[in-house]
Nucleic acid binder design. Sequence first.
DNA 1: CGGGATCCAACATGATACTG
DNA 2: CAGTATCATGTTGGATCCCG
Lengths: 114, 114
Amino acid sequence: MRVFCRNSEPVDFCPVKDVFDRIGNKWTALIMLTLGQAERPMRYRQLHETIGDISQKVLTATLKNLQEDGLVARQVYPEVPPRVDYSLTAKGQSLLPHLYSLAEWANEHMRGNN
Amino acid sequence: MRVFCRNSEPVDFCPVKDVFDRIGNKWTALIMLTLGQAERPMRYRQLHETIGDISQKVLTATLKNLQEDGLVARQVYPEVPPRVDYSLTAKGQSLLPHLYSLAEWANEHMRGNN
DNA sequence: CGGGATCCAACATGATACTG
DNA sequence: CAGTATCATGTTGGATCCCG
């Protein structure tokens, strides 16, 4: 099965391009790994503090995209103050091993030249 | 081995973030897969025609980055008209399987929602 | 607490024309 | 042929303030 595309045969879907379009931004992969490593769902603030440098706006937007892609589940509790939990969906978990192996590759081959 | 990072322990190197910083742009992964699938080195124009939509400027810049990261080798032949061949280095080839598995994941999980 | 709204700087990408 | 130079535009990410 061809997972990339050529110009000669016009395609509607180019797996390698599309997946990087989705998860190739600055924070997506790190957010997913962070959620994947937690045993339980994480609250918004917990996620924000764990990741660290990310701005509220971008964290919120990235989580929203992940939710739309079906990779992350968002659970709202009708409490005051509000509480929102985030966790990986089954689909999100299925992506995790690939992110890990990429990260491991980087750990072995990219130290020092960054 | 931890391949992602936390804010609590300041790190100089965050594999998952850094690898996506490098190969997470619009064309890098597709270029690598294209080079990886060819048996022989590819000329600049050949690469350009195979990829299709990419502009000259971006193709040149991306190849330059790949070269600086040691993922792609650039061979110049002192001919007229000039001839330049591109191929994956061993390091570049070692990344290939991870790109493939990501693309395969996309092929199975992302069709239709793009 | 978990955002939304706004404004802005930086960067990535693209179109076009030109060149050794 | 394989680029470079320039200009224009789109997109991303961040800072700040505000709100239920």
